[in-house]
Simulated scan of single mutants.
Amino acid sequence: MSRFAGKVALVTGASSGIGAAIADRLASDGARVFSVQLEETGHLETIVADLCDSGVPDLAIDHVIQQAGRLDILVNNAGRMVEARVDEMGLHEWRRTMALNLDAPFLLIRHAMPHLRKSRGAIVNIGSIEGLASNPGHAAYCASKAGLHGLTRAVAVDGGPEGVRCNSVAPGWIDTDFNVKFIHALPEQARGRLGAIHPLGRTGRVEEVAAMVAWIASDEASFVSGQTFVVDGGRTAKLSLP
C-alpha cells in the first residue's frame, strides 16, 4: 500500500511500543519516516536527543527539512509517566513530565507549521484516556494529556484555514513491552479482571493504535480535524457495577 508515497513523517518516541508501531506502519504505507528518540535502533532515520531539552524540537524539524525538503506528517508520541499523588509529587518531576508530554509537542508543532502549511499536512498527537479520566497517582500524566487534547483542538482551529489538520488519539490499555511485563507480574486473578474491564474482553495491540494514526494522517480523513479518537476496546464507555 502506498497511501503515503512521496510523503515525509516525523514520529517522536519511536524506539519501542506505540511509537515504533506507528513509524513502521507509516513506512509500510510508503512514507519516509524520521524519528526523535533517546536511543538509536537502526531501522529509522533517527535523531538521538532528549525532547525535554527545549532546543531539540526546532533542531529536529530543521534536520528533517534539510534531509528531505518537506514535512507532511508530525506524530507527537513521546511521553513519560511518574506515579505520585499530587501532594507527593516534586516540582521537578511535574515540570519534566510537562516538558516531554506537552511542551515538546507545542514546540514541534510551532516550528513545523510553516512546512505543514506548504504540504497541507497532518498532525497526530498521542494522548491518553487518562486525558479524559484518571487512575490513582497519575496527576502530572493526566494533566499533561488533557492539555495535549486541548492543544489539539486549538491547533486544528488555527491551522484549518491553511489546510493543516490536527487530531489526537487516546489509547487505553495497550500491550506495550512495559505493560506486558506489568501484566505478567500480576496474580492470575488480577490478569483476568484486566481483560474484563474491556467490553471487547482484552487489552489492545500497538498495531491497532498505529492503524488509527495512519488513517487520521491520510487523505481518507481529509475532513477530520480537532478530534480525539479513543482506542480503548470500549473501556471508557462501560459503567462500573455497583
Rank of each mutant, 00 (worst) to 15 (best):
A84H: 08
G42A: 12
K238Y: 02
W94P: 01
Q227D: 10
L239I: 05
T176L: 07
V86Q: 07
R153L: 06
I123P: 03
A112P: 05
D232T: 02
N101W: 09
S168F: 00
A170R: 03
F223A: 08
S28E: 15
K7M: 07
A122Y: 05
G204D: 12
V206P: 12
S128I: 00
R95P: 03
G121H: 06
F178K: 14
L107P: 00
R110V: 01
E207H: 02
G69E: 07
A140R: 11
H149F: 10
L26D: 04
P187C: 04
S16K: 15
F178L: 12
S134W: 03
V169G: 06
E162Q: 15
S168C: 04
P171G: 10
L100T: 12
G30H: 08
C166A: 13
N135Y: 12
L116T: 11
A20M: 01
E40Y: 13
I174L: 03
P57L: 04
L91N: 06
N167R: 04
R85W: 04
G195I: 01
A27H: 06
V11E: 07
A31I: 09
V155R: 03
S35N: 11
C52T: 15
W94D: 00
G121K: 09
H138C: 01
G147T: 05
G19L: 04
T203E: 09
S119C: 07
D87E: 15
N101G: 12
G192Y: 07
P136M: 08
L71E: 02
T203A: 08
L241H: 14
D58F: 03
A190C: 00
G195V: 00
T176I: 13
G90E: 05
R85E: 02
N125R: 05
R117P: 00
L200M: 13
E39L: 07
S168I: 08
A156Q: 08
L10V: 09
S28W: 13
D62G: 03
L59G: 01
V124R: 06
V231S: 08
E162G: 15
N125E: 09
S144Y: 00
E188K: 14
L132H: 14
V230N: 01
T46H: 05
D103V: 01
V209E: 11
S225D: 14
A31T: 08
S225H: 15
I129L: 08
H138D: 03
N101R: 09
M89C: 09
A27Q: 14
K7D: 02
A214E: 04
D158W: 13
G127W: 02
